[in-house]
Amino acid sequence: MKILIYSAVFLLMPFIFAGIINNVKSFWAGRQGPPLLQPFFDFVKFLKKGRVISVTSGGIFAAAPVAGAAAALIASLVVPVSGSGSLFSFGGDFIFFAYILALGKFFMIASSMETGSSFEGMGASREAFFSALVEPSFFIIFASLSAFSGHLSFSGIMNFIRTGEPLMTAIIILCSASLYVTLLTEGCRVPVDDPNTHLELTMIHEVMVLDNSGPDMALINYASWLKMTMFSVLISGIIIDPATGAGISLAITLLIIITAAIATGCIESMFARLRMTHVPQFLLLTASIAVAVLSIAVLVIFGGLK
């Protein structure tokens, strides 16, 4: 049952997530949206195609799409889905989660540098820098919560966060906001990156994969959607009270995933991508959130604040 829920959430939902974003964007543009499962059909279509490989590239370029998709899948093993718990949970699994995602990123950056293209180098450089900015916030938030709760694992932390108390509500709001910004960064979405842009100079993620095609592209796209789904599942884990029944929390989880997708689509329709120089400022927003979470933890533990 658990494995069933897991495969449904992490193998199927990413496609729906992407489908919802596309439909929301179509709605705002006044167009008739594509079918909800169009990303899945695209995935299959890409798998059926052959590849065009750059003569400059080598082994890492060949390995990176597999490494990227596998890293995202491995990371999803430790993400708890509310109502069913995580497939595999151990102390410090959130550290593992962040580092295994970084492993996929490492391969993707090295792979796009391997093509010897100036544009892909540009994307790689930005990707490396922006993720380095987001990572400390993720750690400060989860390390504070983990030290606060005395649990080293995702599920321990999420069981600790209960709704109802005002400070806990503050933590929930701050964490969700920070995780959502991370979702936008990892998923390469507006305002950090614009997946629809046609100018290579302003791309980040899209420009890194200019030379990938066929099944490799399918894996890369899937990894990106999976990461967004994973982060929205994390948000739902933070929001849902641990006392909620299994069936209801599963329903809420799905609802939150869908809401996150709709929100992403809305943001993408209503805002433009930030100027490249302003992106670090936007990302450092997560750092201030992290400091806020840390100070709440300090106040509660040592200041006797309730």
Partner: peptide
Amino acid sequence: KDESSETW
């Protein structure tokens, strides 16, 4: 069969 070409 993979096609090979110059980097885009």
